[in-house]
Amino acid sequence: MGLRLRLAQRQDIPQLVAVERSAAQLFRQQQEWQFIAEGEVMSPQQHVDFIAQQREWVMVSPTEQIAGFIAVQPFPHSWHIAELSVAADWQRKGVGKRLIDEVAGLALRQGVQRLTLTTFVQVAWNAPYYQRLGFRTIPVARLDAYLQHLLAREVGQGFAANSRCAMEFTLS
């Protein structure tokens, strides 16, 4: 495959936006979520912010084509995966898993204890995929304030409350 991980750079932003739009096209397969394929993606300013904090990584080919990216928000004992996207041409080739594995290794070396994310419960390439990678659904009673806020914001954006969940991956 010849891909390597590196920190995202400002000049990557147009490709990052294109990768996320490409990844979102999978939602055309789900009748109730087709609108996501046409919906908003991370703004260039959001990418600028993650890049400035050195919290966004890309998996690139030898020709610098971005196959996928991951952006995280750091917290004292966890990193929250704000976005993980793999371009359509690179899907089902282990790029998402590799991005998570690489970032998990970086997090662990910095003393981080877990990765978290929010995702769709019933979409095959969301919660079921993350479960296969070792993530576990966080029971509602155990959600921290930030994850509660994220899930509530997602409901405010029109997602059914029971369609989304928070998950965690414990690093060791």
Rank of each mutant, 00 (worst) to 15 (best):
G68R: 04
A87R: 08
A67H: 14
V72L: 10
R92W: 09
S78I: 10
Q65Y: 09
F69E: 06
P62V: 10
G96F: 05
K93A: 08
K97N: 09
D89K: 02
Q73A: 10
H80G: 01
G68Q: 07
H80M: 06
I70F: 04
F75A: 15
I66N: 10
S85M: 03
R92S: 12
T63P: 00
E64A: 12
V86K: 06
H80K: 07
W90N: 00
W57V: 08
G68N: 06
I66R: 06
V60P: 03
A87D: 13
G68S: 07
Q65F: 09
R92P: 02
L84D: 03
S85F: 01
A88R: 15
S85V: 01
I66P: 07
S85N: 09
E83K: 13
Q65E: 14
A71Q: 11
D89E: 12
E83F: 06
M59P: 00
V58K: 04
Q65D: 12
Q73T: 15
S78F: 06
Q73W: 11
D89S: 14
K93C: 10
S61I: 01
W90Q: 05
W79C: 04
H80R: 06
S61A: 15
D89W: 13
F75N: 09
F69P: 00
W90H: 10
Q91Y: 04
R92E: 13
V72R: 06
H77G: 05
Q91T: 08
P76S: 09
I81P: 04
I70Y: 11
A71W: 07
V86E: 03
R92M: 06
I70W: 01
A67C: 12
T63S: 10
Q91G: 00
G94R: 04
E64K: 11
G68L: 06
E83P: 02
M59F: 10
A88N: 07
P76K: 09
E83V: 02
R92K: 11
A87S: 15
H77P: 00
F69H: 14
V95C: 12
R98A: 10
